[in-house]
Design a protein around this nucleic acid. Structure first.
Ligand SMILES: NC(=O)c1ccc[n+]([C@@H]2O[C@H](COP(=O)([O-])OP(=O)(O)OC[C@H]3O[C@@H](n4cnc5c(N)ncnc54)[C@H](O)[C@@H]3O)[C@@H](O)[C@H]2O)c1
Ligand SMILES: NC(=O)c1ccc[n+]([C@@H]2O[C@H](COP(=O)([O-])OP(=O)(O)OC[C@H]3O[C@@H](n4cnc5c(N)ncnc54)[C@H](O)[C@@H]3O)[C@@H](O)[C@H]2O)c1
Lengths: 216, 216
DNA sequence: CGTCTCATGTGAAAAGGTTCACAAAAAAAT
DNA sequence: ATTTTTTTGTGAACCTTTTCACATGAGACG
């Protein structure tokens, strides 16, 4: 059996399905159709069914998908049926916001290490976590068994930090700095670029850009 | 002349070109080839040329693209050769971080209005801007001629705020709340979903997901 | 129990996006 | 002045993703 490559879009939509299923569960729905699920996330029913079909058969014909069970299944596919240990680099404006955000740990992403190079911040307690000196990164990352790094330092230093993070053995990085980071092939890197979305809005406004959305 | 629809990916890549061109300009490069531009943003030369060709011919054969000129052209295409007036809703963790971020205004996005419903925050000065009562939204949005709204309120109230924002005539919204907002066809909506990227990393880690060239 | 309705799962078709490959044009070299 | 080199711009080919459409299976109902 060949492991077919799953598209980035499909994976992102799994996150959306998960979100919708959480709401459906709170609303005490036992089952949900691909039609309803699609409607809740502005997608098409065919898209929902196709996405899920890559991973198995979770539904019942004539009935739909069992809400709680599908939610568990998708969580398992995404690998969030467990805890992930996350370290944050740069406890500044955006870094502080991320640490305060409880939703992440609720989803299994636990920020348990904070690093900075500002002497005024190092050693201080931030939301129950002592901020570590970036110099001790390698040792502390390994001791704490960190698996994911979040980069929230200025763009000018981001590459240096990432080089060290990679050296310390981290294989997954979420980057907020507006710079194209170089990482080895076996390190997963995702970028969060807010300017890009503002620029998209700007483009859409000045060009009357036709919206692409599923017609339902 | 038929206006061909430009893909979302192309628009996002324009942002990347712009970023690379800014660096090239700082490095005093007069011209740049599609090859070099591609390398700097982990894309292919053909992709760069194809993207630009949708908007015109900006290069010289045998020489490449003039850095400063191309930068101006792309800024104009994206509509950021001007100032955009932005209002922010919800001056909490993430909202505060966004207001403090100087890069936005450097790119032409000026956050000039802040709204909240917390009486302790209303009336106080935050980074030189007085926080307004959300109740006065409609009047204040129109007086300040706001064109873009950034939503940084809890997900539970985001839809209500957005409904009012739309009523006030805003046509572009950047949303940070993890919820699928309903807006009319003629309103541009972009979502910033950080959990999605963490979940992508989680998926990649547990599935040894083969890396494809980063699309964005 | 048979029929009816509903909704999944999935090949096939269609649409959309990316890469190829090359003619054309400009610059550089001889 | 001519040849060689470089690099753009772009149709065509290729590949990926989305949508279609329908057979199939499960529950509902008389
Ligand atoms: N603030 C935002 O809303 C926002 C939005 C988009 C992107 N970003 C990006 O996120 C990053 C952080 O932005 P910010 O606004 O939080 O900046 P900030 O200056 O508030 O925070 C940066 C933090 O990194 C620390 N730091 C600096 N150099 C360091 C080093 N060598 N090692 C360890 N720590 C170091 C600083 O001490 C500071 O605490 C930047 O790359 C920025 O472009 C921020
Ligand atoms: N903090 C993060 O790192 C982060 C990350 C991703 C997404 N988000 C999302 O961003 C949004 C804000 O998150 P946060 O962490 O900044 O929360 P927060 O509670 O710190 O801030 C929310 C702000 O909105 C204000 N508010 C609440 N109800 C309002 C109303 N009806 N009208 C106007 N203002 C109102 C509050 O007074 C507060 O100032 C949430 O939807 C959250 O899910 C946050």
């Amino acid at each position: 059996m060949t492991k077919k490559r799953i598209s980035e879009s499909t994976i992102h939509r799994l996150s959306l399905y998960l979100r919708a299923l959480s709401v459906l569960e709170k609303e005490s729905h036992e089952t949900v159709s691909s039609k309803e699920l699609a409607k809740r996330e502005k997608l098409t029913p065919a898209q929902v069914r196709k996405d899920l079909s890559f991973f198995g058969s979770f539904g019942t014909r004539g009935l739909g998908y069992p809400v709680s069970d599908l939610k568990k299944q998708i969580a398992s596919i995404l690998g969030i049926d467990r805890l992930w240990k996350v370290a944050l680099f740069g406890v500044g404006n955006i870094g502080s916001a991320l640490v305060s955000y409880k939703e992440f740990s609720r989803q299994g992403f636990q920020i348990i290490k904070l690093f900075d190079n500002d002497q005024r911040k190092i050693g201080s307690n931030h939301k129950g976590i002592i901020i570590s000196d970036i110099k001790d990164m390698e040792k502390e990352l390994q001791e704490a068994q960190i698996e994911i790094a979040v980069i929230a330092v200025p763009a000018t230093v981001a590459q240096y930090i990432v080089d060290d993070v990679v050296k310390a053995g981290i294989k997954a990085i979420l980057n907020f700095a507006p710079i194209n980071l170089k990482v080895p092939q076996d390190v997963y890197l995702r970028n969060e670029n807010m300017s890009m979305e503002l620029e998209y809005l700007s483009f859409a406004l000045v060009n009357n850009h036709s919206q692409k959305r599923p017609k339902i």
